[in-house]
């Protein structure tokens, strides 16, 4: 289970945000370069439509793979009273042939992306991770060296913290109070951004320009429309 808040920021403000985060967290940033592959089950397989994310950490000397399953977001009265999104997630570190295995099992590539940016990990009422990254799409299959930004001029900010069914209200409170510091720099939303990014990338196939928006304004619009953005 994790608590998550997402936001977007114009690239011109990223440096200021980084300085703020450095001051707030008291730790150094870590470079972030993650190749993310989203797979979906083939139509005949499984009782339900399922989706799995394979994350490859390219910052390590030997690329490290993780499988991540993101479940549904918590709903109901409890969820409405907190200002972050709570969802079930399960992760497992895996060896490098994970993609081959899932293809063999009948999973198909839906889309892939490359996150490039930085992350801060720190303890502040909860084990919080803040990532600031540009989202890039590959022009050729798996060609991470030839990636281009999906939303030029706009970067995605994610604040996450692991939680359990016992402590999520405390974790959510710690995250909300931390996010207040970030509010002047970015538009914070719950989870519309990643859904919209998935959709943009789902539309975008290698060699086709669909899914890449031309300007920062268009990028912001594509990520934010109908999103019900809320500043905390």
């Amino acid at each position: 289970m994790e608590c998550i808040v997402q936001g977007i920021i114009e690239t011109q403000h990223v440096e200021a945000l980084e300085i703020l985060l450095q001051g707030l967290c008291g730790v150094h940033r870590e470079r972030l370069r993650i190749h993310e592959i989203c797979l979906k089950n083939s139509p005949n397989l499984g009782n339900v439509a399922s989706e799995i994310r394979l994350l490859c950490d390219l910052e390590q000397t030997e690329p490290m793979w993780t499988v991540k399953h993101v479940g549904g977001a918590m709903r109901g009265a409890g969820a409405e009273q907190i200002s972050v999104l709570v969802r079930t997630t399960v992760e497992s570190k895996v060896s490098k042939n994970v993609l081959r295995l899932f293809y063999a099992l009948g999973y198909k590539l839906d889309h892939e992306l490359l996150r490039v940016g930085f992350a801060f990990h720190f303890l502040r009422g909860a084990q919080i991770t803040v990532t600031v990254s540009s989202i890039n799409k590959m022009l050729k299959l798996h060609a991470t060296d030839e990636a281009v930004p999906v939303t030029p001029g706009i970067q995605v900010v994610e604040v996450t913290a692991p939680a359990t069914s016992e402590n999520y209200t405390e974790v959510a409170a710690a995250m909300s109070s931390f996010c207040e510091y970030l509010a002047p720099y970015l538009v914070i939303q719950l989870l519309w951004i990643s859904e919209r990014l998935d959709w943009l990338l789902h539309l975008s196939k290698p060699g086709v320009s669909t899914g890449v928006v031309a300007t920062a304004a268009a990028a912001a619009a594509s990520l934010m429309s109908d999103g019900g953005g809320t500043t905390l």
Partner: peptide, 14 residues
């Protein structure tokens, strides 16, 4: 894989 992969396989229901 980490043993949590079994949990992921259950969730995928495939």
């Amino acid at each position: 894989a980490d043993s949590s992969i079994q949990n992921i396989m259950e969730k995928l229901q495939s």
